[in-house]
Nucleic acid binder design. Structure first.
Lengths: 340, 340
DNA sequence: CCTGGAAACGTAACCGATAACGATTGCAGT
DNA sequence: ACTGCAATCGTTATCGGTTACGTTTCCAGG
């Protein structure tokens, strides 16, 4: 039931208990210097009025709030999986979590959005923050851990072994006999996008297959960015026999375009993604992809942030987690292929 | 890069620009009464110092923050889907979103957690809140919309047509020839749990099948709660030929127990869930379930909350969304069944 | 009976920002 | 030159809670 009752403040409690707000504060925070009788009075007043301290007022005055923050620029499956891991790591830790998401998902907030959010939060509200797929390097008064950091960043971060993952993915395609393999890259500024492209190039180089720059499309990890790129690749007179997309979201769009243009998958086109989001298991055919355990990324990032905040850090500050290839129905040997 | 620089406050800007904080505030908020020259000076100081207003301080002073809150007691697929819908509804709306999640997921926070979180947030930080699957009725200074409210609540809320959904699900099983149909109920206090059980009973009654109370297990929507209940049902000398679980999370646990006890699904046991979370599509076999578009629930709740906050509300305050049955591989006619 | 010192509690400054209000300035009109 | 009205900007109270500091109370020891 909604009741428009004014919020109960500390001075209400103080008035009811016949003491000053200072005393109420001491009771609430369990500080020393209050007689047992007064404590009982204040407790009873709190109970009776249903008082609950204001997170805002407290955090404005205090340095420590026991709240950690998470900032993400969009909310897709990737972020949701990360979040589950974060919550798990924080459960029963004494830290609450505040996720701040801005409403301008689509484009207008480009460079620097997370810096804005972060300064707004870390002013006082949170003791530290996790930033998911940032756009730039971060300044902050409180500790920050990046998940999938920008290229060249030396700040604390957690990321998957993107190079190895991408290499394995492309080697899988090469092993099936593919030679003309398209690539749809991720957002250039992120280390992950860079490494996945490196893996693509390295695998081809190892197999003695020259890199054809016209087979590389420049996406940005946003699923929508892949659609026109896939169209370009598949409408060529000589389309590739396989496409490796730097994220599952983009790979799923490739599948969409392929269906639209009448390509049979995996008969005429093999597709590989990266991430292993839940949706990738339920498409028809299932998407072959590189699993990077976003859950684990979130879990480790939260663990690291906790240690940074409490000052008990002792591990290296850049964690790299292993990946594994998940083979599903979207990959097969190319038509008219000679097995290696 | 992390730098331990002190946060830039409004008075820093004021000092740098040679004006008072009031003037800075006016410039920041675009208020009337500042000369163009002063505006330029302040703007330049803001730029130079990298000033960003503190969400906390602002919300303490102001009544309106343009931030909406969401409170959830756990963070599973259900919540994640809801969140996507909420974000979609809020995109480009001018409202940002703060999600507050407490760290004591597992039990210790029982009754009343969302009331605590809500008073902490709605004190000043948010203009309104969405509460997902609350435990009790809510008091709040600012508007609150409940997703999947408690039974008997008259507060603004969004929910699926649980009665119709559950009825359809059980009719599906009846139509396949099942007569002994087990049920695993949800958290008793929620309207949804109640309606889904009603649907179960109604469908059986319509088909002239008596309700066997020993075939009903009392879960709480938490996946883990279903495991022992499923075990009890399936280890009976006369196990049911089908089980309808009030949530997908619980239904997936039923599948797990069935596998563990050597039941073939759907050969010896049919299973139906409710929710249609992403995971349900990717199990083997896929879970037959009632789709309630959690995305849509989130979308509508956010839309409603926006209107409540801006005061432009004109629709009924309790929205019920349709459901649809999604038939996958986990249901089939019972062995030795006679088709109706 | 007086003093010392710790315990208990209140007062007021403060955190960062906003807004009501008052004060100052500039300029047009007479 | 003087009035009057805007435009412009600073002062200050305020939000709710915390804490440094000062004051009062109370009891033990001399």
């Amino acid at each position: 039931m909604i009741e428009a009752n004014a919020p109960v403040t500390m001075s209400d409690v103080a008035r009811a208990a016949g003491v000053s707000t200072a005393t109420v504060s001491r009771v609430v925070n369990g500080h020393y210097g209050v007689s047992a009788r007064t404590v009982a009075q204040v407790r009873s007043a709190i109970e009776q009025l249903g008082y609950e301290s204001s997170l805002v007022a407290t955090s404005l005055r205090r340095s420590r709030t026991n709240v950690l923050g998470l900032v993400a620029h969009s909310f897709q499956s990737y972020t949701a999986e990360v979040l589950k891991g974060v919550m798990k790591a924080l459960s029963r830790s004494g830290f609450d979590l505040i996720i701040y998401a801005n409403s301008d998902l689509y484009g207008s907030y480009s460079e620097g959005w997370e810096q804005r959010h972060l300064t707004r939060l870390s002013g006082t509200l949170t003791d530290g923050c996790i930033v998911v797929t940032p756009w730039g390097d971060i300044r902050s008064r409180t500790p920050v851990v990046a998940i999938d950091p920008v290229r060249g960043s030396t700040a604390p971060s957690v990321m998957a072994d993107n190079l190895a993952g991408a290499t394995t993915a492309v080697e899988h395609l090469l092993g099936l006999g593919h030679r003309r393999i398209g690539f749809i890259a991720g957002r250039d500024s992120l280390a992950s996008a860079w490494s996945r492209e490196e893996g693509y190039r390295a695998a081809l180089a190892n197999a003695g297959v020259p890199v054809d720059p016209t087979l590389i499309g420049r996406g940005d990890f946003n699923p929508e960015s892949a659609t026109p790129l896939a169209r370009v690749l598949l409408q060529r007179p000589d389309p590739p026999s396989a496409i490796f997309a730097a994220s599952d979201g983009m790979a799923l769009k490739v599948l969409e375009v392929a269906r639209e243009l009448g390509f049979s998958v995996p008969g005429e086109l093999s597709v590989v993604g990266f991430d292993n989001i839940p949706e990738s298991a339920s498409t028809e055919p299932g998407l072959t992809t590189v699993d990077q355990s976003m859950y684990q990324l979130g879990y480790e990032a939260a663990r690291m942030l906790k240690s940074l905040v409490t000052g008990e850090w002792d591990e290296p500050s850049q964690i790299v987690l292993p990946t594994s290839l998940v083979v599903r129905g979207s990959t097969a040997p190319p038509t008219n292929a000679t097995r290696p």
